[in-house]
Design a protein around this nucleic acid. Structure first.
Lengths: 356, 356
DNA sequence: CGATTTTTGGCAAACGTTTGCTATAAATCG
DNA sequence: CGATTTATAGCAAACGTTTGCCAAAAATCG
């Protein structure tokens, strides 16, 4: 019965631009221009067209447009898969902030997980090279690369967030991890602390390097030796944030000369650490001061409320999107490939001068 | 210089199917079939084509394919915008689980936020009617509807998750909120509790209705009056999870006859509530027992560790994706429009028998 | 009022695939 | 070995837009 033998879809879906044109009594091209290119068509015909479009409930087909103009309106965010996801409180906030900014710019957000397997790398590359996405925001330190195809030379605008990848030539939006940790360490030193306990994230990870570096800088500035800090953790993924704190507490228990201040690289590990060492009879901040990184809201309601360095994720998300849209719009990529947005310490009761 | 005057894209982007065909010395259509329809082409030519494709780093253009076949391979997840996002710990887990399942099925996940404004409704409808997405998983109770276009009759397969929308004819994947709360309330009654304090989520919200209903059912079953439970909160969004707990603590303080057991509808509010009432000198579970809903990992590290009802979000995500893909594949939509996956109580030290 | 410029609308050719149909080559059969 | 079936490959027409170019109409000018 169907006249059109080469029918592809199953349902006629919605109204087409041709339908709108017919109803408005104009050509298809006029409809197209009326909808997209305000100035190019007479005000009166445009009104007619708009009316027709509304009446038919017309919605332009995104794929047809994308194909024709050779651009999609989708941005993908590349998350370091199970490594990060759900681990740190920051990811949902990052997503929300990025999505909000993107939509204002007329873009949509697609999620891509970059795990350690080749499958996921290939998948991301397919997205990039298949014209599905227009740009990428990456939260992973590794750029997918398989069989000669590499995200780096996909021609896709890419912005790195959280991690500094300016070395790889990527615009990067980061916070001042190092400086923030240095400052808080300096503050602890000023309060009288001399022995420190550092809860590391995954070994070699950018954040870990930066943050531990910050500790060392503060120690050096105060004339303290590197031995004043004991490093714990580092062999677990961020995914196991709470586990890191648990293990570190065991570690801590075995030290003969207890540190008086703990610097944790995420709130999760700080929380589980605190929970465990309180159980051994130590009090916070009486016996040991604790400060961590992330700024999770839950820190306010721990006992005692935890001091934490709040990452400005919303601002970072906005900045990343701005940079990406700039790059897409060919507005000259500002020479600066590194955008730093400052973290703030939220001081709470978990920090005090050491006992004696 | 460019011969092709009607050039659309700016860069030649990657290799085209035509390039592969030329290199392999076959027709375009043969390439297409070789890549998609294994059996339809001779093994030998197929090998030649695959080699050519790999050599050129060919990636099929998703939009062209989508346009031709009239289907996209993108699924959108509709989140209740700022209402939920970042509030409850469950969202990131939901996203991860859904994304993982989708990718295995060859689909991609796009994020859509449904806020209370018309803009976001329109945006989602554009996605649906513009052929951008192939199906939707919705975590919001409201179906977007503007100007006669409604998601309900977009023809798009939709699955509701977390919220039961089977009344609206949507396949729904939910947990047994009511039953779980009823059981835990019954257990509290068994322990000897007779006066309860209920921390409500947003008033009228599905979860709130179900969970509060569970409390009432347990009371009734035990022959206790509805007055045995004091309801607090309910006028704030989930977004303000922690705030709800804080306000509820004030509320609690004013009660002359203190309840001995608290049932909270999210971990966030339980955590802030506990923090505040401990500050007033009450002890948990000595003076008051606390149980909440969600199963956030952080509960294990609260003091005392919080009993919580763990929502099986991973399983729910998987189930939602399965149902959606079934619907897309026209496999008869199983008559059951309601899939229930059971929650489990994780009992911890925050629950005990009342004092006297 | 004729000539020139500016607006406005239409035609048709893309964009990169998929796929129905058809043509050829190979295989099978009587 | 000719006839019939079956496997394989190619042609060309879609899919629903956008947009370069041109033609007609309207406006402006001398």
């Amino acid at each position: 019965m169907n006249k059109n033998k080469d029918v592809a879809g199953e349902e006629p879906s919605g109204a087409l631009m041709a339908d709108v044109a017919r109803l408005a009594g104009v050509a298809i091209s006029t409809v197209s221009r009326a909808l997209a290119n305000p100035g190019r068509v007479n005000e009166k015909t445009r009104a007619k067209i708009n009316a027709a479009a509304k009446q038919l409930g017309y919605t332009p087909n995104a794929m047809a447009r994308g194909l024709r103009v050779g651009k999609s309106n989708i941005i993908m965010i590349i998350l370091p898969g199970s490594l990060y996801y759900g681990a740190s409180q920051v990811i949902p906030q990052v997503l929300q902030s990025i999505n909000k900014s993107l939509i204002q710019g007329g873009y949509n957000l697609m999620i891509a997980n970059l795990d350690r397997d080749e499958i996921s790398e290939r998948h991301i590359l397919d997205l990039a090279f298949g014209g599905s996405v227009r740009g990428a925001i990456i939260l992973s330190s590794k750029l997918p690369e398989v069989d000669g195809r590499s995200l780096a030379n996909s021609g896709l605008p890419i912005v790195s967030m959280l991690l500094d990848m300016s070395d790889a030539g990527l615009q990067s939006v980061v916070t001042n991890d190092r400086e923030a940790v240095r400052d808080v360490t300096a503050e602890l030193i000023r309060l009288g602390h001399r022995r420190f306990f550092y809860l590391a994230g995954p070994e070699g990870n950018y954040h870990d390097v930066e943050r531990y570096g910050g500790v060392l800088e503060a120690l050096e500035a105060a004339g303290l030796s590197e031995d004043s800090v004991h490093r714990s953790g580092g062999h677990l993924d961020y995914q196991h944030g709470f586990d890191i704190g648990v293990q570190a507490a065991d570690d801590f228990a075995e030290l003969t000369e207890k540190p008086t201040a703990v610097i944790a690289t995420s709130d999760d590990m700080a929380i589980s650490f605190v929970s465990r060492i309180q159980r051994t009879g130590l009090s916070i901040p009486g016996d040991v001061s604790v400060v961590s990184f992330d700024g999770s809201p839950v820190c306010e309601f721990c006992s005692p409320p935890l001091s934490t360095i709040k990452q400005p994720v919303e601002e970072m998300g906005r900045a990343a999107v701005d940079l990406l849209l700039d790059a897409i719009g060919h507005r000259q990529n500002t020479a600066a490939v590194r955008t730093v947005i400052r973290s703030n310490l939220i001081p709470r009761e978990s920090i005090a001068a050491p006992k004696s």
